[in-house]
Design a protein around this nucleic acid. Structure first.
Lengths: 190, 190
DNA sequence: GTATGTGAATCTCTTCACAGCA
DNA sequence: TGCTGTGAAGAGATTCACATAC
């Protein structure tokens, strides 16, 4: 699936590939082909059952179940993410937060008590497989190593640096500044 | 240029395409081809002068000059971004912040006084061409329209919804939750 | 010798176009 | 009739491989 993720208008029982294509700014054949890689979900002459399609895609992306995550680095960005409600849509919940700053440890952020980063192994009992990394570049690799050794299999990395992880662990990196840096390119006569 | 952005190890006078490729996890021919689209910056038998290459890429991406930006939506994420120092590397500076919440208007965040969103036209005098949008979905389109009518040509959109802008205006959207949603797919047996 | 710059070959992704089915 | 599902065609991106320059 190279295609984009779907954002379906709710309330319609069926949706056609051309409607989806229009909405996403893509070719309808691409939509059909992408979906077809995972099976035959549609009905000829009708389209795709909206609810069924959402469920199928959720299953494929494995977001049909709840996922627990921990957050490491309770700075401004970390706090913003902890307060962000948008994760719930995809079944994510932040179960614990860690930081190395003694001033932050013990304080409550969004109902979660910030724990000492050296006590990361406390997350083990929860069988948490995902982590959000909002520490600075210097700490990122070390924290990632620690997360992996405590059972984390997926990391959403907000630090502006590359981190190395063993096979079987997935890192998705978001560098906000780098995304912003792409903007001037498109602006004529700056 | 379909290739990735470069993160050069400083301190080395020259860097070869194969070194860059290794660092970025790409093929060296791709690096050379991508760079060649913009000119002949290298020296055969030697490689690319590191500093010169950085300067050339900065020029191409137009991040060789300072860029002023405004931020709209001083929530958790907005505050986090205002406090974030990583933008400076690419020459960005946040000059003003706006919000619709009367409790926030007039307060100081990171040295910047939060202004009333209805007074957005005050940014005109500064000739600001870029904006960071950290409002919710409901306000996003309306704010974007207002930004555009006040001269903004590039928007970094953090709201989890699509916004429409006229030709000549570029939007780069970052949906943190959507990025996170890609993670479980890569994790075996969840 | 070493590494760029680039045509040619290859591979991948996208779109076309239509048979097949509701 | 209308829309899916999919081979075939087309477009685009990546890699190969080597002449060229330092």
């Amino acid at each position: 699936m190279r295609g984009a993720t779907l954002l379906l208008e709710e309330g319609k029982e069926n949706v056609s590939s051309s409607e989806l294509a229009k909405f996403l700014g893509l070719n309808s054949a691409k939509i059909r082909k992408d979906i077809s890689y995972f099976g035959k979900f549609g009905t000829r002459g009708v389209g795709y059952n909206t609810l069924k399609l959402i469920k199928q895609i959720s299953k494929i992306l494995k977001i049909d179940k709840q996922h627990k995550a921990v957050l490491v680095g309770v700075g401004n960005l970390g706090k913003a993410i902890m307060a962000y409600t948008g994760f719930a849509v995809y079944g994510f919940s932040i179960e614990a937060a860690f930081d190395s700053d003694t001033k932050k440890i013990g304080t409550k952020v969004n109902g979660i008590v910030v724990e000492d980063i050296t006590k990361l192994e406390s997350m083990r009992s929860e069988k948490i497989q995902m982590a959000i990394l909002t520490v600075n570049c210097e700490q990122a690799q070390q924290v990632a190593d620690s997360l992996v050794s405590n059972g984390v299999k997926g990391i959403l990395n907000f630090s502006p640096c590359q981190i190395e992880v063993p096979r079987g662990v997935k890192v998705i990196s978001i560098d906000i500044a780098l995304d912003m840096a792409r903007l001037p390119y498109y602006i004529p006569k700056i």
